[in-house]
Each structure stands twice: as C-alpha cells, then as structure tokens.
Simulated scan of single mutants.
Amino acid sequence: MAEESRRQADARRRHELAQASAQAEARAAQTQLDAFVARLGEAGAAPEPLQATLLNGTRVKTPLVGWYLNRARTLAVAPDGRYYQLITTGSALARFTGVTPQPSDPTLVIGRGGRDGETGDLAEFLERAFAEYTSR
C-alpha cells in the first residue's frame, strides 16, 4: 500500500484535532451540567417526566425524568447529569409506545450554527432553567 500522502496526513491531523476539541468541550460542558444538577438538588427542585418531540412535531412520552433546559423543551438533563436532545424520529406507534432517547455529548454553545430556535451559551440556559425550576 502506498505511503500516506502529505495531504492525507494533514486531513487526518485536522480530524484528530477537531475530535480532541469536541471532547474537551464536552468535558467542560459536563462539568457545568453536573454543577447545575447539584444546585437543583440542593434547592429541592424535583425532576419532571420528560417528553420528546418527533420530527413531525408530535410530543411523545419517554421513560426519562429530568429538567428541560430550553423553552422549546427539546434539551434536557437527567438527575445523573446525562444530556439529552429530545428531538427524535419515531414511527406512528410512538404516540402510544413512546420513545427512548439516547444521551449525547453536551456542548458549551446551544444551537451553534443554527438559524432557527434558541441559541446561546450553555451557562445562560442553565441559569434560566435554574430560575424557572426554583421559582415553582
């Protein structure tokens, strides 16, 4: 097999750097989420049942509990600190059976690159959600 070209090596290195950056960002964001969950626990804010939104806009049940992080209720954190994006695919039966979203890596900027919906720093979303859940 031919030796890796300089162009291929550069592309591989850029990919490795991007992955390392994303992992570092996820660790920093996870630290913020863990602190948020701890603060909510200290404040006595109980988690609520979470619902997901299907791509067609239908809201469906999930087996998860936690706290929503945005007004659209499409991002949430569970009591164990796992981060969920609650927009998912689902069949017509999902209205009756529900869905089980998988956790994803958190980011420090919500909605990065998006042109619709809410965007901003994770810290701002956490402060807004904390104020909402502790004022109930």
Rank of each mutant, 00 (worst) to 15 (best):
T89W: 00
G81Q: 06
L108W: 01
A123C: 07
D34P: 00
K61C: 03
P63A: 02
L54G: 02
R115K: 13
R136M: 13
N70T: 05
T62L: 09
R112A: 13
Q30A: 14
A52N: 03
A46K: 09
T62P: 08
A72I: 02
Q19I: 15
A9T: 12
L54W: 04
I87D: 05
G44M: 09
E124L: 09
A22P: 07
P79R: 10
L64V: 05
E3V: 14
T119Y: 01
S135C: 06
T53I: 05
L55T: 11
L93R: 15
E48Q: 14
A131L: 13
L93K: 14
F125L: 03
A28Q: 15
F96A: 13
R71C: 06
A123G: 06
L40A: 07
R59C: 00
A52G: 03
A94Y: 06
V109H: 06
L55Q: 12
T74P: 01
A94W: 07
G111R: 04
G113L: 01
A2M: 06
R128C: 04
T53E: 10
W67P: 10
A76L: 11
A20P: 08
P101C: 03
P79N: 08
A46N: 07
A38S: 11
A29V: 08
S104T: 15
Y68E: 02
D121K: 10
T31H: 15
Y84P: 00
L75T: 01
V77T: 11
L54T: 07
G66I: 08
T31A: 15
A2S: 09
E127K: 11
A28L: 14
A9I: 13
G57M: 05
